[in-house]
């Protein structure tokens, strides 16, 4: 409330005309939009703002940050360490570069996160792993949310037999043991998918996101179904029907936007749980191939040197923790921001 007052006073200071109009009409000069309201509420949730900041930083670090760090590391290695021989080395080359002068080195200015037992730079590996982890989280979320939205929308909109069948399916999926089943599927289908996709990394990526996504859509489906059930009898749907709008358009253009808030919240939280699921798989040694340094894999590899070089396991572990914590705080903030009942 205080921030809203502040913006009001500052705008009236800068814009005299607006302030006069405001006094006359008793409303603020700028019209308030739904999105603006949501943003205002989100901003008040301090932890959510911090979470959003951390996430933006992480995303920048694994993209633009990687570009800058490649140059920095090559430079540092040329001065003190084993120089990189390849021309125009990118992050893919740097994660496998062995610096024999710094085996298991603690964080230094050459290697800000230290090195592992072969002298590979941990920060480069964390950047690469971050790309994989964030991509897995995002794509698995897209799969889970699309499946959940379509299934929930169909169940809620058509009702009857369709609803019964789809809800039984949802209940069935909810009673599948997800961790063992993910382990089982990845274990059985790893080799053929790798062959089909050409490279081990792409193959495992496809199978991991598909399995994680396919076992995580149930909550979204339930939320979307509930919204559809309560909205499909409303007047605006009847009006749309009278105008001769097709059923698909009514479902996705007219009713679905009303369910967007819970979907966004579910989507945010799903990224977090997909990242945890992937890192758990990697930690158990069933995920990405050993030469792909995902965060979970880095923790497993590092845990063998817990005594001699604790940073090897703790840094990537802390990165997973920090990312997921930020995502969860953001989800909490979004829930507060998008809930129409809390509208000012």
């Amino acid at each position: 409330m205080s921030e809203a007052d502040q913006t009001m006073t500052s705008s009236s200071m800068t814009d005299a005309a607006a302030s006069i109009r405001q006094l006359q009409l008793g409303v603020s000069a700028k019209p308030r939009t739904l999105l603006g309201d949501a943003w205002r509420r989100f901003r008040r949730h301090k932890l959510a703002m911090v979470g959003a900041g951390v996430l933006i930083f992480m995303t920048l670090a694994v993209t633009a940050g990687a570009w800058w760090y490649e140059r920095y590391l090559v430079d540092q290695l040329a001065q003190s360490g084993i120089p990189v021989t390849a021309e125009n080395p990118d992050i893919r080359v740097l994660i496998d570069h062995l610096d024999f002068l710094a085996l298991l080195s603690p964080p230094t200015h050459v290697h800000p996160f230290g090195t592992d037992d072969l002298g590979r730079d941990l920060l480069a590996r964390c950047i690469y792993g971050g790309r994989v982890s964030l991509a897995v989280g995002f794509v698995a979320m897209l799969i889970a949310i699309s499946l959940g939205t379509v299934i929930g929308a169909a169940a809620g909109f058509f009702g009857g037999v369709v609803d019964q069948a789809l809800m039984r399916l949802t209940d069935l999926f909810l009673s599948l043991p997800s961790v063992p089943l993910i382990l089982l599927t990845v274990y059985l289908f790893r080799d053929p998918v790798i062959q089909a996709m050409g490279s081990p990394e792409a193959g495992i990526f496809v199978i991991v996101v598909t399995v994680i996504g396919a076992l995580a859509w149930m909550q979204t489906a339930r939320v979307v179904r509930a919204t559809f059930l309560s909205l499909k009898e409303k007047e605006f749907v009847e009006a749309a029907r009278c105008l001769g709008i097709s059923r698909t358009a009514i479902m996705f253009r007219h009713i679905l936007p009303n369910a967007i808030s819970p979907i966004i919240v579910a989507a945010t939280l799903e990224i977090g749980s997909a990242i945890i699921a992937e890192s758990t798989l990697s930690f158990l040694g069933v995920g990405f191939p050993p030469d792909t340094p995902t965060w979970g894999r880095l923790v497993t590899d590092g845990s063998q040197y817990l005594q001699a070089a604790p940073w090897l396991a703790l840094i990537p572990g802390a990165l997973i923790f920090l990312t997921v914590l930020s995502i969860n705080f953001m989800g909490d903030g979004l829930r507060d921001a998008l809930d129409p009942r809390s509208r000012l």
Binding site: G272, I276, S279, T280, F283, G296, V299, S303, L306, Q307, P310, A313, L314, G317, A318, I320, F321, V324, L325, I327, N328, F329, D332
Partner: peptide, 22 residues
């Protein structure tokens, strides 16, 4: 509670191991 469900259990395990066991 937020920390509790954001932290991967292998990370809690490793941290506890490092502090209390090693």
């Amino acid at each position: 509670a937020f920390i509790g469900f954001s932290v991967p259990s292998f990370f809690t395990g490793l941290a506890l191991m490092l502090v209390f066991a090693i």
